[in-house]
């Protein structure tokens, strides 16, 4: 399928860059007319080293959990299977969590894919749209019935993540602790709110089904309806704790009484 002629073209050059098993292109020369096989490898190395560095910066706790060398090998496989589709490298790596989920070699770390999801969402929040958290003091004067009718506008960077594993505990322990922490993988699953109200990305714990409330608010439901959905999902849902996380995180940028028409 790959003739030497087709290698001496942009398509062949690109194919041989992605796949080190392919022969290097014909017709390239190095110093004073010498063949340039290892000169070609400089470009291969540039591509894989730079993309691996981007992934390493984006998924620091995944790196921590599997080790630098293993991460580099894994990244090379990921890069070959999912090369960037845009020159904006900031947008590269969204497929990494799904890749880890299917990657047999990390089967012993079943939570790894969710750690990658968490790190990807932190990355998205870091570069997402800016918005100013709302002044929530007027809410203190509202009657509980009026509270239930409120609709909130959430910060554009706010996302909730729910995992069957204690992702937030694992992430915090390994993002800040100097030594690798024992992973409490048998502990209960966790939900977290990720938001960047100002310069820093915040990670706030949510009670069970807190993510359901947040998703419902993002769909434009009233607080009362959203709380009912969350409570139906999990008996341990706690509205006060969820609101506290949203308030503390600066995750609410606006609110309106529910009776006003909303699309």
């Amino acid at each position: 399928m790959t003739s030497p002629d087709s290698l001496n073209s942009e398509a062949g050059f690109a194919r041989a860059l992605w796949d080190a098993r392919l022969p290097r292109p014909a017709g390239v020369i190095g110093r004073a007319g010498r063949p340039a096989a290892d000169r070609f490898d400089i470009h291969r190395n540039n591509i894989f080293a730079s993309l691996t560095a981007a992934l390493r910066a984006r998924f620091p706790v995944v790196v921590r959990l599997v080790g630098e060398a293993f991460f580099a090998d894994m990244a090379a496989i990921f890069i070959r299977r999912h090369p960037p589709v845009s020159p904006v490298i900031m947008e590269y790596g969204g497929a990494f969590a799904a890749f880890l989920k299917e990657f047999d070699a990390v089967g012993a770390l079943p939570y790894l894919a969710d750690i990658a999801r968490l790190e990807w969402l932190r990355h998205l929040a870091a570069h997402g749209a800016d918005a100013v958290p709302a002044d929530l003091s007027p809410l203190a004067r509202l009657a509980p019935s009026a509270m239930a009718e409120l609709r909130f506008t959430l910060h554009p960077t706010a996302t909730a993540l729910s995992s069957a594993y204690p992702v937030a505990s694992i992430w915090r322990a390994n993002a800040v602790a100097p030594d690798l922490q024992p992973v409490l993988a048998d502990s209960a699953g966790e939900s977290v709110l990720i938001v960047r109200p100002h310069r820093q990305v915040l990670l706030l714990d949510l009670p069970p089904a807190g993510d359901v409330l947040i998703a419902a608010l993002q769909e434009g439901r009233t607080l009362g309806d959203a709380a009912a959905l969350a409570a139906a999902r999990d008996l341990d849902f706690d509205l006060t704790l969820t609101l506290a996380a949203l308030f503390r995180g600066g995750a609410i940028t606006g609110f309106a009484p529910g009776h006003s028409s909303s699309n």
Binding site: E10, L17, I47, S50
Partner: peptide, 11 residues
């Protein structure tokens, strides 16, 4: 860039 993929190097 080639074939919808970006190679992240100046080739």
């Amino acid at each position: 860039s080639h074939g919808g993929h970006y190679l992240n190097d100046l080739l």
